[in-house]
Design a protein around this nucleic acid. Structure first.
Lengths: 145, 145
DNA sequence: GTTCCTGCAAAAGCTTTGCAGAAGA
DNA sequence: TCTTCTGCAAAGCTTTTGCAGGAAC
């Protein structure tokens, strides 16, 4: 299971990437929080245990983890990027009201198009937007007033 | 056919949106250039015929056209947004080398997931990334050297 | 001891905001 | 005439860059 922090460290070691305290904390945070956090969310949380932490390090680390193939970047029509540990194929649903991102199961391999026969596809993202059940419910209650 | 400029004007009139010179030019540009242009590309081109044009107007217009349901915004892991006239369902492939965006046919309705039974899906985007045929070819030639 | 990483400060890039003058209906 | 749009200047946000000191191995 990739989310195991020891496995993650092993992967980095295999790629000759130094296991700094900051990097391990970022990885650990992503492994434990499947909330598709933004740089700022990661920063705010980790700063509690690493007071000297800087946002630059978060950016550096996330770029490196993306390069190493351990994290995905999500940019769903948003100002700030969101990050996640690479996981099984799934799509992302972003609620336009509460801004939360929800995963949904999906085999992206099923999505093929003969138009792309000569293309080398390296990443596949499926992004949906709309209202999540909670926000739909709130809307309903509001309109009853 | 939605790309017809007269039809586009009709749609705006029906929504009580004023048909300013700038707006019509932006619409016309998008209808004639299926290249998923950025704000800057639209600005640079239209500025030739409207010297006083400002980027703010491009932003205002694109927001309004999106609101009116006439354009789509694409944010494929990119710094700047790209725009297109709404068209048949299709996916987008972005070449990570030349940065061009290619359309490919796709029925997004086919992409369903029981996980989203209680969600209200309003927009569906399928984004692929990788290398386009031309860049693959260049790579091949480079490695032969 | 080397090499690479961290974090600060500053800058860069895209987008938004406020507002006065201009244009659309 | 009344309302709405345009375009300027300035600000806002996220992200990147350069570099000196510090940590990893």
């Amino acid at each position: 299971m990739i989310e195991n922090i020891e496995n993650l460290k092993e992967i980095l070691r295999a790629k000759n990437i130094r296991l700094s305290h900051q990097r391990l904390k970022v990885l650990e945070y992503l492994a434990q929080n499947k909330t598709h956090p933004s740089v700022d969310e990661i920063y705010s949380e980790l700063q509690k245990s690493i007071p000297s932490l800087s946002r630059t390090t978060i950016y550096n680390t996330l770029h490196m983890l993306k390069e190493a193939g351990l994290v995905n970047v999500l940019t769903i029509g948003d100002s700030e990027a969101r990050y996640e540990i690479i996981a099984e194929n799934h799509g992302h649903f972003k609620c336009t009201s509460c801004e939360n991102i929800f995963d949904f199961s999906l085999s992206v391999e099923e999505i093929e198009s003969s138009d792309l026969a000569d293309f080398d596809i390296k990443e596949r993202d499926v992004y949906f937007r709309g209202l999540c059940p909670d926000c739909l419910e709130s809307d309903r209650k509001d309109s009853e007033k």
